[in-house]
Write a protein that binds this DNA or RNA. Structure first.
Lengths: 120, 120
DNA sequence: ATTTTATAGATGTAAGTTGCATATAGCGCA
DNA sequence: TGCGCTATATGCAACTTACATCTATAAAAT
């Protein structure tokens, strides 16, 4: 087990959608709430995902050097980014439907197996 | 998009649970029903998953050369395999719960964005 | 004054899953 | 003979991820 997709891309997209203009470090914290598979999303994965999303035109970034502490790279969703989020919603819906079916069959198979071995 | 985990392992396990003793080629056909993400599971992935499961002790295999055509490698779940399937059911349940949350937030965010841009 | 902690971003490397292409071989059929 | 279905297997590239590590700023603690 232990090697599932963490869905970094939709989690980052939805964090940007909710927070408006934000930066990676904050998304990393926001992502812990949404994280798939109990384990939080790795910060490195988030930074890489943001770069990839920018290369694809789904987000724009600017440096913010106003506040104290190290500079932040602020990201905003583009219209293409919003469209991409919509696509993800559909993909996730299909994915959930299929996964639910797999889980159901798992449960059924295990139940049947347990019943057949109930007699000591 | 397009690069999601296909969950070959639980799909193969549940196919074995349902079919009893089977072989890869048949699982490949069974898996098309259960397949996650609309696209059928690649046959290569199934053969590799079966080997991996055997190395881990979750299945046993024997050659079947009785019938016509090429020999089949028959697989059966071990008790450890059944236990592994139970583990998968729990993992999938957690996974589904988290993914549902992500999807819900996607929908909410998109809806809000659409409403704010409803005025031409 | 120095060290630690929190903030913030980035990269290198290895591991794991997958898709596609390809190779093999047996067998039935035209 | 060649074609197609059955059946298993491997090579390779692509992608995502985890973990470790690195840089740097600034505040808090020692």
């Amino acid at each position: 087990m232990g090697n599932l997709y963490r869905f970094a891309e939709p989690i980052v997209l939805v964090s940007l959608a909710r927070l408006g203009t934000t930066y990676g470090y904050q998304i990393a914290q926001e992502a812990e709430r949404l994280a798939v598979t109990h384990a939080g999303l790795d910060a490195a994965a988030i930074y890489r995902t943001l770069r990839r999303l920018e290369d694809a035109g789904y987000v724009n970034s600017t440096w913010d050097t106003r506040g104290p502490g190290p500079a932040r790279r602020d990201y905003v969703l583009t219209e293409a980014g919003w469209a991409h989020l919509r696509e993800w919603a559909e993909v996730l819906e299909d994915f959930l439907k299929s996964l639910r079916a797999v889980l159901e069959q798992c449960r059924e198979a295990v139940k049947k197996h347990d019943e057949e071995h109930a007699d000591q």
